[in-house]
Design a protein around this nucleic acid. Structure first.
Length: 301
DNA sequence: TGACGACCTGCAGTTGTGCA
DNA sequence: TGCACAACTGCAGGTCGTCA
């Protein structure tokens, strides 16, 4: 049984006239007649009652026609769905990040020149991002920890300095820089455990010879900044985050020792096929962070 | 092992014609 | 006039052998 036979059957059933159906289908009448006969042979029953020169759909034909029409509706829906899906995937970039704070600037700048592109974004830990890349669930991962694995490419995007912020009335607020060990007894306001940034700052404190006293841990950098302004403690802040805070009632200190930096990078699977939109986003991301790096140099030297 | 061409087969379609 | 059959043509797809 073939689609062509079913298509011809629909037309003959609708017109109940072999010659008119053949004209509509733009084929010779004997060809149509033979096609319908083959279909009837396949099914093992006649679909039409033939009386003299007339053909009429019989009970088998009626029942079969209903099924055929439903099948064609399903097939047409399927075609449309696949078409939409194909077009949609062309315009969608899937992205997992461990540092969501970079997204507004990055995506905003990209969408300004590519308004038709849509993003699906996930906030994930580094191990989960690696799994997503390996399973083909995302196009790219942007992370402050290198993602390594078979067929995974990881490239650095930006190296940014990490500062310490203290309340403006804090004794250290008159200084430009400190050694991290100088604040070993200070109350710290920090990101919650599990965040890459928290793991990084804990490691930096260990390198300086102490374990920080965490008085408050949260998910929101803005809340952390607010608590520092209220005089409740000191906190680490990446250069880019500091730059984007509209009000800076707290004081920023450069950390001389140990070297406090973090590197943001982008990872993808070398096996993955990239849509045009994804390919453009990758190129754009490198250019965007080059500009950000220049801005950080201008601002912080 | 994959690419390519020659050959074969099956089927859709056409023309001509017979039958009701 | 309209349906169906026979003979034929053209084309697409499959198979097989050859070659790099």
């Amino acid at each position: 049984m073939e689609l062509l036979q079913l298509e011809y059957f629909q037309t003959v059933a609708r017109l109940q006239h072999m010659t008119k159906a053949a004209e509509e289908l733009q084929i010779a009448q004997p060809s149509l007649s033979k096609t319908i006969s083959r279909l009837e042979e396949d099914l093992g029953v006649p679909l039409f009652d033939r009386t003299g020169r007339q053909i009429r759909l019989n009970a088998y034909g009626e029942a079969f026609l209903a099924r055929v029409q439903r099948a064609f509706v399903e097939l047409n829906e399927g075609k449309r769905e696949i078409r939409d899906l194909a077009r949609l995937n062309e315009d969608i970039v899937t992205l997992a990040v461990s540092t969501p704070r970079i997204l507004p600037g990055l995506l905003g700048a990209f969408l300004a020149s590519h308004p038709d592109v849509r993003f699906r974004q996930f906030f994930e830990s580094a191990p989960e991002m690696k799994r997503q890349i390996e399973n083909g669930e995302v196009d790219f991962c942007i992370s402050s920890a290198a993602i390594e694995g078979i067929d995974i490419e990881w490239r650095p995007l930006l190296t940014e300095e990490i500062f310490l912020i203290v309340p403006s009335n804090h004794p250290l607020a008159v200084r430009e820089s400190i050694r991290l060990a100088e604040v070993k007894d200070e109350p710290f306001i920090s990101m919650n455990a599990g965040y890459e940034f928290r793991e990084l700052t804990d490691r930096l404190c260990r390198e300086a010879g102490f374990v920080p006293h965490i008085h408050f841990a949260g998910d929101e950098p803005d809340v952390i900044a607010g608590l520092v302004q209220q005089g409740l403690g000191v906190a680490f802040v990446p250069a880019l985050t500091w730059l984007e805070w509209p009000r800076r009632a707290s004081h920023r200190l450069r950390i001389e020792e140990p070297a406090c930096q973090r590197q943001l990078g982008i990872a993808w699977s070398e096996r993955r096929y990239f849509s045009t939109a994804a390919e453009r986003f990758r190129v754009f991301a490198f250019a965007y962070f080059r500009d950000v790096a220049k801005r950080l140099v201008r601002e912080f030297g």
